[in-house]
Structure formats: structure tokens, C-alpha cells
Design a protein around this nucleic acid. Structure first.
Lengths: 313, 313
DNA sequence: CGTGATTACGTTTATCGTAATTATA
DNA sequence: TATAATTACGATAAACGTAATCACG
């Protein structure tokens, strides 16, 4: 048994049971993968994959049991490298964050700037995706930290820490009838055509819930992934916008008026997802703390080693 | 990085930082160990061992951090083998138990016999040792299960499950003055020369505590490791014996009278030690359940995955 | 027939053990 | 000076890639 064989098994599973795909992703030859996996199966005395003739079609029952252990073993190997580089050079390395558009555009710029000042030699990269893509990337270890408001707390293998809470706001053109209204009601809002987020993003679920609770069926004329698209079309008079409050900037968004909506929709919690059992570099803890000051290293470690339940404040 | 290198590091640490000793234990050459460890250090970019000239003298700080991860990684590798053999052949394999003399001689024979009937193809071996040796063997993975009354709950890396509780008894020659007494007191007992267990064994701590609580200082003329030695010398008239109740057998121990002492000394709990994170074969769970029927597989698994606190009934 | 896994085979690389060397207590 | 680790080196074996073969849809 060797580590290469375990990586081959892991990557074959991640590649949807295709040796060819695994070979490409690992920059090696397909016969090599085939050979090593068969050697491993021979050594362990069990079939890991179900083969129909020459096609790999499924994981066997032992294969499923072994797969989770393989993941854990390789995670510890990664941890060895992480800890070693922690000692080798405290302040250099790489940190990869996955976030939704809203977070990347409105919540993270300040954090990223502060982090760059503190750790100029850390290569920080930010990838954008849907909440489920972010969860996936965090689970495979492709990114160190995932940040999103939706979905992250649905994965038992992830630790989803609450980062901050925020409310929705309503935006309208300055000359819109709602702009002068003191307190907007759901009923009033439902009378307009709405522009807001795609159902998988940025607290859209809470918006739908609020309307549904009053048997209202407002017409959503545009479901966008990012707040900038919403603002653009609100400006064009296409409808009334509902966006995350932090996405509005009085100076930048001239011509648009923001109205409070915190009494209309449940508040949202943006979460920070970490892969359970994965060692983090010190600068990663610091990034998290910059983003959410209450999440100090001891707090994160405690949540990491604690039970599998979702962590709440 | 490869698994061999990790084993070399682990064994070098276990061998007291001696490459020579590690090489012998692993049946390989010393230069091989030296080379592989240096390769690993070069790859990780950190020194694992402190070298004074050509002597390995200590673990570096990163070395300490890495050592615990190495142990976990190798444990997962062992788990792969365990799970694989579980599927390969359900009812064959090996089970190694470490126990103290008292357990091996009086508590385990029935369990072992039942286990042999149930799993004739499992090679069952029993090694004897002191409680601390048993803990050590369980922690290194040399044995699957450790059984002892003392010490096992002092090691955070071990899970110490309560197996059964028992009391001490007093044994005297049939013609001894105590033999006809209804209820023995501590004070009466302290007047005699005593023969009992070595301080590290079989509930001796509770005996000492009971006397100390009443400011009594009985003279222990013989501290034995096993009950048979105690019985032998009690028979010879050397003193009054205090042994575990289950070590007395009316038929076998003719000439000796047993007196209840459950009111004198705190009861003892014999514990079953398991290495946290180590996968156990089904037959190992069955052995544990034969020994302590309340410890079913779900109970053991729950305690295993639960928090680090000592498990109590 | 095209795609994907296995088998065959030669090259390259890494690992291991013996022997020699060096440093320490 | 004896013990212990490192370096040097040759033999062995493992891993890899290319090419050919085989099975399935």
C-alpha cells in the first residue's frame, strides 16, 4: 500500500468512477492508475470498484467504507504538509477563498485589503461560485474557506460558522412612489414587479418565505445572481429591487433610494465553511478573524474538534 | 512523502529517538532509516529531529506537532487494512488482548472459551502485563483491547469503558480467629499482618485509601501481583489475605475461608481500554460484549466517536 | 467503431543493504 | 575507543509511460 494508490482511488471516485478522467487530473497515464488500483485491491483482498467487463460502474460495499477512510488518511497527509509549512515560513503560503458574488463584491474587499497588508507574502486567491459549488470546493479541499449565506450548513462534513448577519433592503429610483413612504409593507411591495436574487443565492429563501406567509405572490421579473445587475435594472425602471443592505452605497448608487426592509424579511446569516479535520495555517485563522472578529482561533478550533452539530452563537 | 517514511519517524520516536533501535524493530537497515527521514525532512522543509552532530537528541517543535499527525495518518492506514479484512473474511483474523493476571486468570477464561466457540478461526492471543504496560500496548496498537482495573482511565488517547465492578474479600486459613467472626472491621483487620496486591494492581489503591481514612497503618508483609501467590502464603499462615472476590473458589481453595469485605473497601471497576480512532473488527466488538454484556457495538461506537471525557455508566 | 479499461514491455527511478566514513560521548 | 549516524555505492525492485489488446455501448 502506498499514498499514490490512495490518491488514485480518491481521484477516481471524485472523477465519477472514470480512470481516464482521474489520470488526466493527476497528470499521469491511465494504465498506471489501473495497475495501481488493482494492486491495492489485491493487497487488501477486496474489490473497491465494481467492474462490468472492462468498465468501472460503481463502488462496492467495502469500497464505500474504504473511501471515507482514504479521505481521512489523505487529509492527515495534507495536514502534515500544512503544519510543516507553518513552521517553515510562518508568513508565506497560499490562501484560497470561495465566495458568492455578494460576499466577494461587498463584504470581502475590506477584509482582503487588510489581510494583504498583514501578510503581503501570502498568495491570496478568491474564486466565485454558487453556494453549492462553494460547499463542494470546500469539501474537496480545493479551497481553504467557503463563504456564502445559503446552503453551507447542509453538509455534515463541513463546519459552518456564523460570520455576520444582515438584512435585506429595498431599492427604487429616487422618483418612485415608494421612495417617500415611511415604512413599506409586504402588501405594498407585492403590488410592484420585483427584481431580486436567484433562488439559490443571498437570502432569497427568506424573501420567498415572507411573501408566502401572507399568501402573497409577487411577480419577480428578474432573478439575478449579483446585486449590480439588480441595481442596473432598477435604475432602468424595470421594477423594485430587493438586495442585501450592504450592497447599497449612497455615494456610488446615485439615483437610487434605499428603504429599510429589516421588518419584512428574516435576517440572514452569512456563514464561513471549513472542512472538518483540515489543518489551517495561522494566517487562515487571521483571515477568518478579520472577516468575523468573534471567530478567534480558539473559537474555531473548539468548533472544529467539537461535535458534528451545527455551531451557533 | 511516503508511508514508509512516516513509519520510520513513528518508530524512531517510539524507540526513544534511536535510529538503530528503530531499524532493528522494523527489520531494516539503519542507513535506510536515516536516509528516508532526511528525505522527508527535506521535502517538508523542517527538521523533525534535533541532531547534535551525529546524534539524534530530541524532537523539534515542528517534530512534535508532526508526530501526532503521523500517528493519526498511520492509524487510518491501519484502519484501511482492518476494514478490508473485515470484508475479506468476516470470521477470521487475529485478536490480541492485554490483561492483568487477575483478569486473565479469573475473569477471562469463560469469555475466551465462549469466544473460541463462536470464532474458531480467529487467532486469539492474550498477553499479560501491569496496568501501565497494558495501557502502553493499547496505545501503540500492539493489542486491540486492554483490560485492567487500574490506570486505564488516565490516558486521554485511550477510551476506558467500565466492564464490571467487584469487591475485595478477606481470606484466612480455616482455623484463623477471624474465620468465625460475623462482620470484620477495618480496625480488627489492621491488627493482622496483611498479604495483598502490589500497589499498581487490582484495586490496591482502594485498600490503602480505606485504611488511611481511619488513620490505620496495617503492615503489608507481602505485596503480590497475582492472587495465587497471595493465597499460597495465606495458607502458609504468613498473614491475612485481601484479594478480589472472584479469585476465590470454594472447591479449589480448600483450607481457606473467605470473608466478605464489600463494606470495608470501595468497589473496583475493571475497565476495557480501546485506542481512540482505531477500527475494530466485528469479532472484537463481540469479545467485548461477551466480557461486558452492556457494551454492545452501538454503545462502544458511540463512546468512541464521542467527546474525550471519560465514559461512565 | 469509438470509448475506456487492461495487458505487455522497456525505461527510468527509487529503495535497500553493505561497506566505509565521520562525529560524539 | 566504542557507539551511533551519515555518506557512498551497487544490486534489486517498483513505478511509469508507450503501445497493443480487449470489452462494452
Amino acid at each position: 500500500m502506498n499514498l499514490q494508490q490512495l490518491r488514485y482511488v480518491q481521484e477516481t471516485i471524485r472523477s465519477g468512477l472514470s480512470l481516464t478522467a482521474a489520470a488526466e487530473r493527476l497528470h499521469t497515464s491511465q494504465p498506471g492508475i489501473s495497475r495501481q488500483i488493482r494492486d491495492l485491491e489485491a493487497e487488501l483482498g477486496v474489490q473497491i470498484f465494481v467492474r462490468r467487463g472492462k468498465r468501472v460502474t460503481a463502488l462496492t460495499e467495502p469500497g464505500q467504507a474504504l473511501a471515507t477512510i482514504v479521505d481521512r488518511a489523505l487529509q492527515e497527509i495534507d495536514n502534515l504538509r500544512t503544519v510543516a509549512s507553518e513552521f517553515h515560513d510562518q508568513d508565506s503560503g497560499a490562501l484560497t477563498i470561495a465566495a458568492t458574488h455578494t460576499q466577494a463584491r461587498y463584504a470581502l474587499p475590506g477584509v482582503v485589503a487588510a489581510f494583504k497588508r498583514r501578510y503581503p507574502r501570502v498568495r491570496l486567491s478568491l474564486v466565485q461560485g454558487s453556494p453549492s459549488q462553494i460547499a463542494e470546493m470546500t469539501m474537496t479541499g480545493a479551497v481553504d474557506v467557503g463563504i456564502a449565506t445559503e446552503a453551507l450548513d447542509h453538509y455534515p462534513r463541513l463546519l459552518a460558522l456564523p460570520g455576520y448577519t444582515w438584512h435585506h433592503s429595498i431599492i427604487v429610483p429616487d422618483d418612485h412612489p415608494l421612495a417617500t413612504q415611511a415604512k413599506v409593507t409586504l402588501e405594498a411591495l407585492a403590488g410592484y414587479e420585483l427584481i431580486t436574487y436567484d433562488p439559490a443565492f443571498a437570502g432569497r429563501t427568506h424573501i420567498d418565505e415572507a411573501f408566502a406567509a401572507r399568501q402573497l405572490r409577487p411577480e419577480v421579473v428578474l432573478a439575478a445572481i449579483d446585486s449590480d445587475v439588480i441595481k442596473t435594472y432598477v435604475e432602468l425602471g424595470l421594477g423594485v429591487g430587493i438586495i442585501a443592505a450592504m450592497a447599497y452605497d449612497r455615494a456610488r448608487d446615485r439615483g437610487l433610494t434605499m428603504l429599510d426592509a429589516s421588518h419584512l424579511f428574516r435576517s440572514n446569516t452569512t456563514r464561513i465553511a471549513l472542512l472538518r479535520g483540515r489543518r489551517l495555517r495561522q494566517f487562515c485563522y487571521d483571515f477568518i478573524e478579520l472577516f468575523a472578529p468573534h471567530l478567534s482561533r480558539p473559537m474555531v478550533d473548539k468548533a472544529m474538534t467539537g461535535s458534528k452539530e451545527t455551531y451557533e452563537l
